[in-house]
Nucleic acid binder design. Structure first.
Length: 499
DNA sequence: TACGACACATACTT
DNA sequence: AAAGTATGTGTCGT
């Protein structure tokens, strides 16, 4: 919800001002009203600024390859404003670790499947002056993930054959019951060196901190996109899940499938900052986020990694943004005061994610923020999870586990990465292995978000705050987001803003 | 130094 | 209009 958009806003806009203005002290001193005003101002500016950035990005993108062209994002077009604004770190081309193909009746000629992975890293990263993607270890990142299969035949079983080298299972062919996505990070130039990612609850330190877990997702299709997803509230029920797996992929039958076609990992942070974060150019270390697509091969929790996509290299700074004022995205100029550089500057980052051109596909691109909150739910305990068909474990219990008081239970998963046991335990917690199905859980606390998530909108529909906020920017003046924009998104993705 | 935790202030949502 | 909650960030302590 709010997060994404919100952040964007805030970070982008307000903070800037404040920072620009003077730093926190000012804040404190300043009257609230004052700030706000400034905020507004800033916001508007922010927009432009954003745009600019984007351009920059674009340029860089080109180089990066793979990035989505600005234009591409049409979907977002609806949100265009924002999308354009936000420059997000581009992703490198998809790397496949084996072969996916449909098991045609005539076993003889399996149809090869091309996998596309879409991922958008929101919020945290910003392009530093030197055009390097940078983010702060302490700030949240959000990563919107989805994938597509082409061709996509929902009812035809799929099989995966790992590339010989890639896995221990090489040579074997697995029947794929479903797919899940996850994110991880590694040191650029050193894939072997993985960097842990952590996911906080809205409560932050108070709540549990988990690693991002695999989230079962249906492939994105033009059709699938929107409505199908609703699983949330109810969808959460296992059936859905199963459906997926059972059928193969969430076949349309369900109507909406249980599984969403997109998931947003929210409140993600790098466990560690890159070495030399900050200024030292020499030996600068970079991290790369990896959006992974895993196939559920039915085994005990076995998920086999099918493909992944690494993001552009990023510098993760460990210190307060204030320490890096100089750098910040100065370029954009965020308008407002030159000082702009202030802390907030970084914030400017992008609020929203863009989608790759690919997104276009199903319209999928459209922002699907929908899923976002799911995890938490899971995390917290509720678990709605259903994971694999096999186990149906968790359910109710988990829920209670959560209960308010405990609110979030945290399961220290010891094994995050390392093991893949399907772990029942993980279920709730979202162990890596565990697949989370995005749905909502009635959790104790964090209600809002969850609910939002639930809401309906997988995609465009109403966007959560994001839209509004953006709009705000445009409009400027409004203080409260209020509901200015009922932004309605047409299926296509157009939204209408009132103001 | 870098990180974890605490705490404050702000921003946004309801 | 007010309150609550989520997030950013400064700072302290380790």
């Amino acid at each position: 919800m709010a997060h994404a958009p919100t952040h964007a806003h805030r970070t982008g806009a307000l903070p800037h001002l404040g920072q620009q203005l003077g730093a926190r002290e000012q804040y404190s001193t300043t009257t609230p009203s004052f700030r706000r005003a400034s905020e507004h101002l800033s916001r508007s500016p922010s927009f432009p600024g954003a745009a600019q950035r984007r351009h920059q990005l674009t340029a860089s993108q080109g180089s990066l390859a793979g990035f989505a062209p600005p234009t591409a994002r049409m979907d977002s077009g609806q949100y265009a404003s924002r999308s354009s604004q936000t420059p997000v770190p581009p992703l490198q081309p998809v790397q496949t670790l084996g072969t996916l193909q449909y098991q045609n009746e005539a076993a003889m000629n399996p149809t090869p499947i091309t996998v596309e992975i879409h991922g958008t890293v929101d919020k945290g990263p910003f392009l530093s002056c030197d055009q390097e993607w940078t983010c702060y270890r302490r700030n949240y990142l959000a990563c919107v993930c989805s994938y597509t299969l082409s061709p996509y035949y929902p009812n035809i079983p799929i099989q995966f054959t790992p590339a010989s080298a890639s896995t221990p299972n090489s040579g074997q062919t697995f029947q794929v019951f479903g797919f899940a996505m996850c994110i991880s990070a590694v040191v650029a130039e050193n894939d072997q060196q993985s960097i842990e990612l952590v996911q906080h609850t809205p409560k932050r330190d108070k709540g549990p901190i988990n690693k991002p877990s695999k989230v079962a997702l249906a492939p994105k299709t033009a059709s699938s996109t929107h409505h199908s997803m609703m699983p949330y509230g109810d969808g959460s029920t296992v059936p859905g899940t199963r459906g997926l797996y059972g059928d193969g992929f969430g076949t349309p039958h369900a109507g909406g499938q249980q599984l969403p076609a997109e998931h947003t990992f929210e409140r993600i942070q790098f466990k560690q900052a890159t070495q030399n974060n900050g200024k030292r150019r020499a030996a600068q270390q970079y991290y790369q986020l990896i959006v992974e697509l895993w196939a559920d091969v039915g085994g005990p929790e076995h998920y086999v990694k099918v493909a992944y996509r690494k993001s552009a290299k990023m510098i993760v700074r460990g210190r307060s943004p204030g320490h890096y004022q100089n750098e910040r995205r100065g370029s954009q100029g965020n308008g407002p005061g030159g000082s702009a550089g202030g802390l907030g500057g970084y914030a400017g980052m992008g609020p929203m994610g863009d989608f790759n051109s690919n997104a276009m596909l199903g319209g999928a691109g459209t922002g699907g923020y929908a899923t976002t909150y799911d995890n938490r739910g899971n995390v917290y305990g509720s678990a709605r999870a259903h994971e694999m068909p096999d186990e149906a474990l968790i359910s109710p219990d988990d829920g209670k586990a959560l209960d308010g008081s405990k609110a979030y239970q945290y399961y220290p998963g010891a094994m995050y990465d390392g093991h893949h046991e399907r772990v029942d335990m993980f279920n709730h917690r979202s162990g890596p292995e565990t697949v989370v199905i995005p749905s909502m859980a009635p959790d104790s606390k964090v209600k809002n978000e969850y609910e939002l998530g639930l809401l309906p909108r997988p995609y465009n529909s109403t966007p959560r705050a994001a839209d509004q906020r953006q709009h705000d920017h445009f409009s400027d003046g409004k203080a409260t987001s209020g509901g200015y924009y009922p932004s309605i998104v047409s299926p296509t993705g157009m939204n209408m803003t009132m103001t």
